[in-house]
Amino acid sequence: MPVVEVNNRNVHIQQMNMDAPETVLLVHGMFSNLSVYYFHIAPILARHFHVVMYDLKSHGRSERIASGYDLNSMTDDLSGLLDHLDLSAVHLAGYSFGGLISLKMAARFPEKIKKLAVIEAPDPNDDKTRDIIDDYSREFLEHYVENFTDTTKMKMGKRQMERNHRMYEYLFHETSIKNDMLLERDFFNTPEIDQIPRDTLLLYGKDSNCLSAGKKLKDRIERAEMIAINGDHNIPIQEPASIANRLETFFRN
């Protein structure tokens, strides 16, 4: 398993087509892992690009850590990963929480980002986003697994349910993720969003409850275009080829 050490922690990464001249880096969402891209989105991008995927801290096969889930820390991790891989500037795409990390990355380190794609990033000030963090329970987990995870169509067996339950329990009760996210509630209203200096593609599901967040970003980011894709918050699972082709076209032109 390819593991690199970034900021004193082990990070699981996967790469495709390492000989390509330009790199696309993909950031997954909360409670998910790099596999959301690995099978259906990354191979399409890898026809032309070097593709890098990584597991966020305490997710997938990356090392657990109790603190540092605020967007500054998450982008410190990402910046450190780019340095470790000797990548001076990349195209960046992030989904959901990974979309927030990507926005923050383009705001903080524009010199490291060529073009930015944001898929279904929620407004951290939206009640629905906060409710997910506030109303955690076993019932919520089952509902969440049914409706919001990247394993939507795969019914979970006992081992998977227990494993995911342990991850949720760990993230919610033994890490600072809940408080760190609450502290980010004003992120969409900060000037740094207006000042993102890169071409930005916003991909949102037509039926997503995050669609209004996309429209808000479209109004705020000067060089942004927005495309609505058939589906809801789960568009990377529902329409992976469409997402990959949109990203490929955007990053190539």
């Binding site: 390819p2 596999s35 096969r61 394993t151 795969m154 019914k155 998977q160």
Partner: peptide
């Protein structure tokens, strides 16, 4: 893989590797 072995997608990534 998914029903009998209950492998999830990140485990299939590791298996592929």
């Amino acid at each position: 893989f998914t029903k009998d072995l209950e492998m999830d997608s990140i485990e299939i990534v590791s298996f592929s590797e």
